Every structure is written in structure tokens, then in C-alpha cells.
Simulated assay, not measured.
Amino acid sequence: MLEGHRGLIPQLYAFALNYLMQRVLQAQNILNLLAYIEVGGFVVHLVLTWLAVFVLDYGLLGAALTLSLSCWSQVDLTALYKVYSPSSSSAIMLCLEIWYSQGIVLISGLLPNPTISFDSFSICMNYLNRDMQFMLGLSAAASVWVGNKLGTYHPKVVKLSAMVVTGRSVLISLIFSAFVLIFCTSLSKAYTSVYTVIEAITTLTSLLAISVFLNGIQPIL
């Protein structure tokens, strides 16, 4: 009897994860997928239980382990859907962008003059991160609006909203890029008084403006 209880321990963790992911999918009105996964998990459970109990003669422990394995198979299938869904792709893209920004600062320490490179890159990344925070706020607001309209079955409004938000983000990104091109050198003096660092930032201004423009569009997409 104790062995059977031990075999159910992995199932507890799977149940917790599966419960959370089911609630997320239900909130998104993705019900058919949940039904298919549950039916598939039930079939897998029947087959594995028959093999473990009647063919391999593992008894109660085998039945408990097959239940845990069936629950984890449902978790894996649901997680695969979330990984390959558009929302997960957007999240991965955002993570890569953040890692890219931090990686540039770290790699700057390997350049011939690491002190100047690190200082100049850090100041440029500060501008870029401020732009990202603003655009992420706009993206969150747009996501809530689009989600509400999808929930009330207004696809035309969603399409129009996406076009408006994308156009507005492009316009804001152009304004921010122009601001960087015009005032980047003068604003850098608020961070440092070292002439070599300011000169290095000046050489990076055009690249920073392009990054600000692209960085403003990416969160909306």
C-alpha cells in the first residue's frame, strides 16, 4: 500500500501544473484542445495501466506510476501547445531582446578599451531600456484591449485596433529616434563628464537611433 502512495507523488506536481495551464486555456476559450488532451491522456492511461498491471505484473505500484505518467503526458502536451503558440513566440522574442541588450554590455568588457566601451554601452542601453519600458506599457494596454474585444467577438475592431496601435508605435518610435539623434550627446553629459566616453556615445548615436526605432515596434508585434 505504501508503494502505491509513493507512486502517486509525481502525479501531485503534474496535477498542479496541469490545473494552472487548463485555467489559462479556458480563459482563452481554448476548449477543444483541452478535450483532445484529456481524451488522449485517458487512452494512454488505459494502455499503460494494462501493460504495468497485467503484462509486467507491477501491481499497485505500477498502477500508481502509470497514473503519474499519464498526468505528466497531459502536462507535456499542454506545454507543447503553449511553447508553439504565438504568445509564447512573442515571449521568447522579448526574452532574446533583453538578453541581447545585456549581452552587449557584457561583451563590451572584451573590447580593447573596456572602461570606455563599458561606460558608453551602458549609457546607450539606458536610453534603449527606457524606450522599451514605454513600449511595453503600450503593448500591455493594447493586449488588454484586444483581449477584451476578442472576448466579445468583435474581430473587425481587433483588426482596426492592431493597425492603430502599430501605426502609433511606429510614429512614437520615429519621434524617439529623432530625439536620440538630436539630444543624445548633450544628454550624455548628465551621466558622465569624461570626454572620451561622450565621444564614443556620439559615434554610436546613429546605431542607437536605429535600435530605438526597431525596439519600439517589436513589443507591439
Results as ranks from 00 to 15, higher is better:
residue 207 L to N: 10
residue 123 I to H: 01
residue 115 T to F: 12
residue 188 S to L: 00
residue 147 G to H: 04
residue 189 K to S: 15
residue 51 L to W: 09
residue 147 G to Q: 05
residue 88 S to G: 14
residue 217 I to H: 04
residue 220 I to E: 01
residue 43 V to F: 15
residue 28 Q to S: 14
residue 51 L to S: 03
residue 140 A to H: 14
residue 119 D to Q: 13
residue 131 D to P: 02
residue 4 G to E: 06
residue 60 L to E: 04
residue 146 V to H: 04
residue 26 Q to R: 15
residue 50 W to H: 05
residue 164 V to R: 06
residue 50 W to I: 11
residue 112 P to C: 06
residue 180 V to E: 02
residue 130 R to V: 12
residue 166 T to S: 10
residue 99 W to D: 03
residue 180 V to W: 07
residue 87 S to C: 05
residue 148 N to P: 01
residue 165 V to L: 01
residue 179 F to M: 08
residue 54 F to K: 00
residue 101 S to Q: 09
residue 196 T to V: 09
residue 59 G to K: 10
residue 103 G to E: 07
residue 176 F to C: 08
residue 123 I to Q: 00
residue 171 L to T: 03
residue 87 S to T: 08
residue 206 S to A: 06
residue 24 V to P: 00
residue 75 V to D: 00
residue 100 Y to R: 04
residue 72 W to I: 01
residue 178 A to N: 03
residue 188 S to G: 14
residue 154 H to I: 05
residue 126 N to M: 09
residue 79 A to S: 15
residue 182 I to N: 09
residue 198 I to D: 02
residue 139 S to N: 03
residue 202 T to P: 12
residue 217 I to P: 00
residue 117 S to R: 13
residue 194 V to I: 13
residue 31 L to A: 14
residue 94 L to H: 02
residue 59 G to W: 06
residue 177 S to N: 02
residue 142 A to D: 08
residue 26 Q to G: 12
residue 20 L to G: 01
residue 19 Y to T: 10
residue 42 F to D: 06
residue 10 P to C: 04
residue 205 T to I: 12
residue 12 L to K: 06
residue 14 A to L: 15
residue 102 Q to L: 14
residue 88 S to V: 02
residue 70 S to T: 04
residue 47 V to N: 09
residue 197 V to W: 03
residue 159 K to F: 10
residue 46 L to N: 03
residue 47 V to H: 07
residue 92 I to L: 11
residue 152 T to N: 06
residue 154 H to W: 00
residue 51 L to K: 06
residue 106 L to W: 14
residue 16 A to F: 10
residue 122 S to R: 11
residue 32 N to G: 12
residue 80 L to Y: 04
residue 218 Q to P: 05
